[in-house]
Amino acid sequence: MKVVLIKYNAGNVQSVLYALERLGVEAELTDEVEKIRAADRVIFPGQGEASSAMAYLKERKLDQVIREIKQPFLGVCLGLQLLCTHSEENDTDCLGIFPVKVKRFIPSAGGQEKVPHVGWNSLENLVKNPLLKDLPDSKFMYYVHSYYAELGEHTLATTTYIHDFTAMLHRDNYWAIQAHPEKSSNLGEKLLENFLALPST
């Protein structure tokens, strides 16, 4: 199976490559359009800032490639946010795969919550989906983010911080996870394994 990670100006890709390696998959990090189109699985990782990431994708026409892709596609962290319509992070228009907006966490008045949301938090309200098959009992995932996607019709699972937000999304061949599966122990590994096991399209 050919798995590619889309190479763009976002950090933290090495950990994703290692996580796939632990599952016996040698993934390739690339920004070459043909390689991305030809892959069996495409992963869109990322940690970074939305507007510079979108500008980088557009410059290399990767935005079009992502919109046209037919094979199973997984956005992670910033990757999830860029698949939504718009992000409040520097007022950025995103890829629009998922018709929801990305907003900044605002601590409740007098609240103790800090931003970013950093640490382990639990998945709730899981929808039946092949990505969520046979998950371990412990539903905690590792999060690091200041922006979140609103709830919508494609929300697969939620997490609560200050309020409920979208933890995962699914529409057609696109899946997305806000937390970091590559850093989320058994649960994260199972999610990646399930993604790799999705039927090819």
């Binding site: 290692y18 390696e21 632990r22 970091h180 590994e189």
Partner: peptide
């Protein structure tokens, strides 16, 4: 460590 450990 990054290769073998699955937590941050």
């Amino acid at each position: 460590v990054a290769k073998e450990v699955r937590i941050p």
